[in-house]
């Protein structure tokens, strides 16, 4: 690995970070709604565009990060260090941002920081990489930011994963916030969203 293999960051850092942040903010404030990514940056493999956009917009030198071994290629590691300066931590429970494939969500989520009653904002944000949305195990969502109900089905999220997410929602106001990062879109599931079986 040499610096020559570094992937470039946002081509227009200020503007790209601003529109990406807006997209992520919208995703988190309208849980379950799938948002198209406003930019398509070069991605360090095996990160997809959703994970790359989230890393470049939300991470900085003041944040801690943990990347699952299955994603932590040298090029991903270098990309995060060079473009964000985020501090890698050895223990997943110490990280503010956690990147993992969706398949690892059921095992990983219970280990993450859920914040404290005094500082619920110190909880972790999980970025689960998915191949897309729809045609998968579906659940009904309700709560703040949702007009009535909505449905969500990230590809690769199985029943066990949904159970862990439902348990996490039960911890509110503590608990983990989750982004589902796809190759061309993102959606989010904050801890405040209630999860119930699909009506169908």
């Amino acid at each position: 690995m040499t610096v020559q293999e570094l992937t470039p960051g946002f081509s227009d850092p200020v503007r790209d970070a601003a529109v990406s942040f807006r997209c992520l903010l919208n995703a988190m404030s309208r849980p379950g709604l799938v948002r198209a990514l406003p930019v398509q940056p070069d991605c360090p493999a095996p990160f997809n565009a959703g994970a790359t956009v989230i890393a470049l917009s939300l991470l900085d030198a003041d944040t801690t990060v943990w990347v699952a071994d299955s994603l932590a290629s040298p090029v991903v590691t270098a990309h995060i260090a060079f473009h964000t300066g985020a501090k890698p931590v050895a223990t997943v429970g110490d990280a503010a941002f956690v990147f993992a494939p969706i398949a690892e969500l059921p095992e990983l989520l219970p280990q993450l920081s859920i914040g404290t009653p005094e500082y619920p904002d110190r909880a972790a944000t999980l970025i689960a990489l998915v191949d897309g949305f729809g045609g998968a195990e579906e659940r009904r969502l309700s709560g703040p930011g949702i007009d009535g109900n909505t449905e969500m089905a990230p590809i690769g999220l199985n029943a066990a994963g949904w159970d862990v997410l439902a348990m996490n929602a039960g911890l509110f106001p503590l608990g983990v916030d989750t982004f589902f990062a796809g190759p061309s879109s993102v959606a989010a599931l904050p801890r405040s969203t209630r999860i119930s079986p699909n009506a169908a």
Partner: peptide, 14 residues
Amino acid sequence: MNGDTGAATALRDA
């Protein structure tokens, strides 16, 4: 990358 060593060394040429 988890830990303090990997990230830095991956970035640099000797």
